[in-house]
Write a protein that binds this DNA or RNA. Sequence first.
DNA 1: GCCAACGTTGGC
DNA 2: GCCAACGTTGGC
Length: 151
Amino acid sequence: MPQYWLFKTEPDTYSIDDLKSEGRCGWEGIRNYQARNRLRDEVRAGDQVLIYHSSCAVPAVAGLAKVVGEAKADPSQFDPQSPYFDPKSSADNPRWVLVDIVWQESFTRTLPLKRIKEDPDYSHMELVNRSRLSIQHVPQDCFHRIVKACR
DNA sequence: GCCAACGTTGGC
DNA sequence: GCCAACGTTGGC
């Protein structure tokens, strides 16, 4: 049984259509311990991922992706040129991980945060209650409702 | 650009 | 291990 997640991204930096053109990417730059722990301990190959656009004109669920492979060290933590560089991390004891995801769908009809907040059926989502967490668990029923609303 | 909420750091 | 100070996130 796959699990369902929501990954946040700022579309000015990396959007669902950037993922579409790449096909596959390592979801780099997660620098929060709880989010990391989820990537490392809970996110599995085959899990479904809603891609959410934050810090933009219309914050919204924008697309669908799938996890491939297991968590591994995020190379950007070792790159001094990267905004995600972490001088306190070391190659023999990496602090941050990423997972690879593949593009599945860019929604023509996105689901704005505003609409999610208005709907009581979504009131227990982390997007509503724990909005700052960048790797969010999505209840199965919410996942299916969101995908349906976007098609 | 503001600011509330939340996460991290580091002195003690 | 507490907690004040500070930094970041992200909606508005």
